[in-house]
Write a protein that binds this DNA or RNA. Structure first.
Lengths: 164, 164
DNA sequence: TATATAAGTTGCGATTTGCAACGAATAATA
DNA sequence: TATTATTCGTTGCAAATCGCAACTTATATA
């Protein structure tokens, strides 16, 4: 056994956390209002007043969050050509990439009794609802937590079970 | 056209938001530390001191968040039979259900340059990494935002595009 | 011209955060 | 057994953040 072998869960966690993207991602959208703004954007909201009235958020907080989300590349800020008073906030490709996160949380909330939306996301081609988001194996099989493990990025080294 | 037809994006949004589970879900885990605690739990952390040292969170805040997550049914609090000083915090099935959310956010973060973890989640059977989480049609096809629309829960009524 | 709307900003009291120190119960050690 | 260490908190306090209401600026409308 090498001398630098990590022995405890916490050592392994701290080691893995060093390059984990989650802390930085959470700084951007791991906050109540940022997440609700994101949901609003996916639901077609584009303007300051829409977000303000739609979410019931204080104007200064909304201003702050929109700025941070624009700075973080999630939203783009553009002028409305038809009305120079208005500003259009729209999702960037990077922001659109968060749809699985938003949808997974919505589905979890529905499953655990926090509400059921009257409208559903569906495939535009056949109007059938989208699948429930889940963790899948390479061949598409759904994987439960007990069927998962951690592997080293470069192939082989399995070092701990994911579900402990 | 019926008299109560909703015309503006914001009216439609407010109508849909009335029963949306996301606000309640966000109250529980839509917060920096709650989300990082959840990530820690998925990575095998179980004890107060592990979370504290692993995340660098203040003790009073950690205490508050753990209580709320236990009250919210995400974590379970149990006594350690081998050491009566210790408390074991473990994921409930409800908490485990948040794995797609955590994983989707991690994958998003990796895609957009917030870090790359050395270890990956994999299928325990063949040690092949899990798929990238995405929105899928009923038949498993990946759907982009432009291929999505909203439908009414009871079947037909399509009323707006998802990607505007 | 006068009024309304959109997108913020400012001031201020209330809440939340983060740090450090303290405390009680249990375990390990000398 | 006596002493020290560990574990899981709590408490006090200063700093940062939040949320409300009022104000500002620029543009559109009547």
């Amino acid at each position: 056994m090498p001398a630098d072998t990590l022995t405890s869960d916490i050592d392994r966690f701290k080691q893995a956390a060093l390059t984990c993207p989650i802390p930085a991602a959470v700084e951007l959208i791991g906050e109540k209002w940022a997440f609700l703004i994101l949901r609003g954007a996916f639901n077609g909201l584009h303007h300051f007043e829409e977000f303000q009235a739609g979410l019931g958020i204080a104007r200064n907080i909304l201003s702050d969050r929109l700025s941070k989300m624009v700075a973080g590349g999630i939203l783009a800020r553009s002028a409305d050509p038809n009305d120079k008073r208005r500003v259009i906030y729209s999702l960037t490709p990077k922001g659109e990439g968060l749809l699985p996160v938003v949808l997974a949380l919505r589905q979890w909330g529905e499953q655990w009794g926090y509400g059921n939306m009257q409208i559903l996301l569906a495939d535009r081609r056949d109007l059938r609802p989208v699948r429930k988001i889940c963790v899948q194996a390479h061949d598409g099989r759904e994987l439960k937590l007990s069927e998962l493990t951690w592997i080293d990025r470069d192939g082989e080294g399995l070092f701990s079970t994911a579900a402990e």
